[in-house]
Design a protein around this nucleic acid. Structure first.
Lengths: 173, 173
DNA sequence: TAATTGTAATTGATCAATCAATAATATAAC
DNA sequence: GTTATATTATTGATTGATCAATTACAATTA
């Protein structure tokens, strides 16, 4: 009776998109696979045709890190040295507005020690650091090491300010 | 039969100390009140004589913020301006070594939107920012606003590096 | 004996994961 | 083109385990 709604590939994407939102809003451990299923408009058992709860988190994190890498790559490929850093900052601010849930999910994952999640986080951060670090070096910045460290630190404070609804934590202008 | 082991006040402290460890290790939502009770060497129902699970988290956060405030106050009260910032950084590093669980708990709480927890976090951070901010101003630093922002950002990166076991994230030196 | 300290037993709810089945589509044969 | 067969998509029902919270009761001390 029910019409077949989608392909398997689309279903995977639907489920991951739903999981990112539900996990971010409710918290990974508090959120249930039934809630993810409801948001994806499928049944709870069908989620398990594609993911376990943990593999769903790992996949969600992978999506979130790819989003940042890709946005930064665009900036790096199209920026003069004097606009590189401000361009990266603007790109990150854009992601925080449009994909807030993905950042909230990364923040949650920071304190989850289970190996697959820990590895996804380490890999994501390392990729960002290498990407931005190399771009700073290529741009001819002398203190690239300090610059990348400051960049990451500012990003972390930015995340915290967003998560806890404390915009005053970020310096104006 | 069993000898009375402690006073009510001591019991509260025992339970909070146990909760900080268990919540940090296992994660607040995954951890059970039975695990907290076991670590505190009491029965699970007896935890509820003092706390609900949520009030236990709020109390744990309060302890963790007081720890930082107190350590920073000592540094501020005893440092010459030229050693103020480095003293604060060393104090924070000491806390991260000796009270790692408290920091991990704060990181978890960053993404928990429930009002009592959110309020405990906002209050804690604001108190730190005011304390350090005033100290920077009193020390005669001109760019106190940027300095406090950088200080907090560095702290956030420090937390993340510790939580994810990525010491390379912090700049050597 | 009255208050305080404590626990065993239980409850009601919740949840990740599985199973057994059905519906829809595609393919092939006639 | 209609029938038979296989494949994919999907769900209802269930399960086994877990957990926060309560209740009813026992031991200890002042």
């Amino acid at each position: 009776m029910m019409a077949r709604a989608s392909t398997s590939v689309n279903r995977r994407n639907d489920i991951v998109a739903a999981a990112i939102e539900v996990f971010a809003e409710i918290g990974y451990y508090r959120a249930t696979t039934a809630q993810v299923a409801e948001r994806a408009a499928i049944s709870q058992p069908y989620v398990y045709r594609f993911f376990t709860k943990e593999s769903l988190l790992v996949e969600s994190l992978s999506v979130s890190w790819k989003r940042i890498v890709q946005a930064f790559q665009v900036v790096i490929d199209s920026s003069a040295p004097e606009e590189l850093e401000s361009g990266l900052i603007r790109a990150y601010e854009g992601i925080m507005q449009s994909y807030r849930s993905e950042i909230l999910l990364q923040m949650q994952a920071q304190t989850i020690p289970d190996a697959p999640i820990r590895e996804a986080m380490q890999q994501g951060i390392n990729e960002i650091r290498d990407l931005v670090g190399n771009a700073f070096v290529s741009a001819g910045f002398e203190d690239a090491d300090k610059k990348i460290s400051d960049f990451l630190a500012r990003g972390m404070l930015c995340n915290a300010a967003m998560a806890m609804d404390m915009p005053d934590l970020m310096p104006k202008k």
